[in-house]
């Protein structure tokens, strides 16, 4: 379907977000949904990023500021815990890093090529100066 040409569009198209019947979507987590290939969830914008956020759970206090202010539904929180970043949908805006209140921050921006293990190993320590 993604391969369709410009003149093969269905006029007045109706797209289904899910395969088959979708019940209680608001109570069904992403991993339990049967997304259709028309749902942008199945697409990726990873190649938009120049920088990427890296998450260091050692300092995280699960405040969920990053979750609520991420524009791209890319902070994965389950059972009130921040557990990771959805790298297919993160556009690298950096908002999550800005709103993270810990010292040192639990999220930091690195260039897209940076090795995550290395970033975590060289994580800055507590900033004693002005915050």
């Amino acid at each position: 379907m993604a391969e369709q040409g410009w003149d093969e569009f269905e006029i007045g198209a109706m797209l289904r977000s899910f395969n088959g019947e979708a019940k209680d979507v608001a109570l069904t987590l992403q991993e339990d949904r049967d997304y259709s290939s028309n749902n942008s969830f199945t697409a990726s914008v990873a190649d938009w990023r120049i920088k990427k956020p890296v998450f260091n759970k050692d300092y995280c206090i699960d405040c969920q500021f990053c979750w609520v202010y991420c524009p791209d539904i890319s902070i994965i929180s389950r059972d009130k815990k921040m557990i990771g970043i959805d790298m297919d949908h993160c556009k690298g805006c950096g908002i999550c890093v800005e709103v993270c209140p810990t010292n040192p921050k639990s999220l930091l921006m690195y260039s897209e090529q940076t090795d995550e293990e290395q970033a975590l190993a060289a994580w800055p320590s507590k900033d004693e100066g002005e915050k």
């Binding site: 608001a26 069904t28 914008v45 609520v68 539904i73 890319s74 009130k80 949908h89």
Partner: peptide, 26 residues
Amino acid sequence: NLKEFSTSADRFEGANLLCPGCAHSI
């Protein structure tokens, strides 16, 4: 509180084409 809010199952999906940092989606 925010922790409770964060258990929500979003009904708006990523890989939309809004600019990085766009407040519309927030």
